[in-house]
Design a protein around this nucleic acid. Structure first.
Lengths: 347, 347
DNA sequence: AGGTTGTTTGTTAGCGCTAACAATTAAGGA
DNA sequence: TCCTTAATTGTTAGCGCTAACAAACAACCT
């Protein structure tokens, strides 16, 4: 019997061999298929002897339950849909990893839909895709203000966890405390004696970008400093480079808090080319702490976000919603600052 | 009727409202459920009048077919499993995006399983996860020599497309021509007059790393140059930095072909710190062309791989295997060199 | 003994869909 | 006209599973 499993290596994909069903296991164990189902699902009222007999039969036949059949009757697919944009970026990619880890541990499957561009249409498409698949819940990894509305009007009847949002309305949220991160960055610069601290933000319709800018503003206000030095980039190294060139000419600030590490890379290059020394002339702080940040020139002081943890928290929240009937809520992960060579007291 | 759909916004997730079934659509259109099924599945023998009536009913009720029920009877889940490691890296992440795009276009769902570490056990786990889900095929985004063996012994009865492999045995492959990429890089350096060209490779048990090293060797051999300057890194900027420090002391080569952009970043920083000027003293070429490469200091000459295209090709191949009964094969994507400021003729 | 529990097992129905076949109607040819 | 063929629709069964109920049995009390 156990040989049969090993000897089918010659078979093609479309092997006609039927996979064992509950019925097959039941027959082998001398019980009804329902009893096998009980064993598989860990129902309490099965005698020890029966359970062992069934488990042996399951092992011998290599039985694995059929997800489609199970889903059909339970109306649960045990699948979570992850709606993501910018999946090639360090942050979202790692959040996805966290979600996947927590999901698989909990016996869930993870289905993905990537958005090429963030629009109501593309979000609707992706959400419909997930509903067609019958996902039990959706994790929205689209930290864009418009996403929430686009999702809300769909009236999905599955729980939604939005990453990077505090979870308004029917949605739950999981977020890194962006304001705190920004305050840590600015506080570090203030401690070193900087008075003129600029900010290169991400696009302001991104929730994270808006929060970081707000945190920067709050920290400056608290210290009685001006918050007039704000330029908006698009998250890319290229935009950081362009803005950096401009800053190198103006020289209005002694320190710049940059919205992410990629833009910071562009800034460092622009400064390098313009002869502005970092950190002697201008200090630079990034955000994210992607693995390369420590190898920029100079190594970048930045704010670390634990994206994987964020992903795991997302999934924890999702599980609570699905299995414990929890209500929508928010979970917050704290960032921390990583000080490297790109910051120093002003000259 | 159409109001009913709009007015349930007050309902909780666990809305008791049953979704419409074929039967409901059939009743509304005044036909049998089978006729509706035919319309849904584009079967030919349905009269135009009937088809239109059914389509109207489908639209009015907002009918969407139940995937679980369909899968149960067709034994097709229309789901592709993507087995991935290093998903937070630029290459794999973008390949995944390509797969996702092609899959969703073709009406397939994409399920992912990320490997924390590449081992036979973790691969077996992930593959079993996919079989439990009943995926129709697996795309292995694990460009590691051991992966193929670990997958082979599982005797999966679904098609497998291995990315970065030429597709041995029962598996199909989709790859960027790594040897060609390496030859392009080395040829560029030779054209500029370099005679001593070193290579910092990735771990040699990664298929891509081995191929790139081999391409480097071939190009040197063809030009009658020595291939004794090879150091193995681990793909990370940190390892590039460490090796770069060493090279800065030895100064054995006038040009270095680095296995990926991240390691190249580390090399640039090590050279910068050691006072080795790039490209005046040493030329550096990377591999991948991740978006930041153009903003390194100096901007990096590198070999561009179109990862999204690779992913799409993967999925095309998978579809051919699944739907056209194609046999295992290989598809190859060509890389191209992007020349920037990190390379110049030797002094 | 006879009833009242509780524990363990079996039986039946049906989730929503498609495949296979049966039935009906329309069209064409002798 | 009737028979053959093709096009269109309907009927039935069953994919593999779990929920709900029913049955069998043991244990324990009055």
């Amino acid at each position: 019997m156990h040989c049969r499993l090993e000897h089918n290596s010659f078979m093609a994909y479309s092997s006609e061999r039927r996979l064992p069903r509950l019925e097959d296991v039941a027959e082998r164990a001398g019980v009804s298929h329902q009893t096998v189902s009980r064993v598989i699902n860990n129902h309490p009222n099965v005698s020890k002897a029966t359970r062992e007999r069934v488990e042996a039969a399951v092992a011998e036949l290599g039985y694995r339950r059929n997800t489609a059949a199970r889903s059909l009757v339970t109306r649960r697919s045990h699948t979570i849909g992850v709606l993501a944009s910018e999946l090639s970026q360090y942050g979202p990619a790692n959040t996805l990893l966290g979600v996947e880890q927590a999901a698989r541990n909990a016996g869930y499957f993870v289905s993905i839909a990537a958005l090429r561009e963030v629009s109501a249409d593309s979000i609707t498409d992706a959400a419909r895709h997930f509903m067609d698949q019958g996902v039990d819940g959706i994790v929205a990894l689209v930290p864009h203000a418009g996403t929430l509305q686009a999702l809300e009007v769909l009236n999905l009847d599955v729980p939604v966890v939005v990453v990077g949002s505090s979870g308004e309305g029917r949605f739950s949220g999981a977020m890194v405390d962006q304001k705190l991160g920004a305050r840590l960055a600015v506080a570090h610069l203030i401690e070193q004696g900087h008075k003129r601290i600029g900010h290169i933000s991400g696009p302001q319709d991104w929730i994270d970008a808006a929060e970081r800018a707000e945190g920067w503003r709050e920290a400056l206000a608290q210290a009685g400093l001006d918050d007039d030095l704000l330029v908006e980039g698009d998250w890319s190294a290229g935009s950081g480079y362009g803005i950096g060139q401009q800053l190198a000419v103006e020289r209005a600030a002694t320190a710049v808090f940059v919205g992410n590490d990629q833009m910071a890379l562009g800034v460092l290059r622009a400064f390098g080319e313009a002869g502005v020394r970092v950190p002697q002339d201008v200090s630079v702080v990034g955000f994210d702490d992607q693995p390369e940040a420590g190898y920029f020139m100079p190594p970048l002081t930045t704010v670390r976000q634990d994206f994987e943890e964020l992903g795991r928290r997302c999934m924890d929240m999702m599980l609570a919603l699905l299995e414990d009937g929890a209500v929508a809520g928010t979970t917050v992960v704290d960032p921390r600052i990583v000080v490297r060579a790109s910051t120093a007291p002003p000259a």
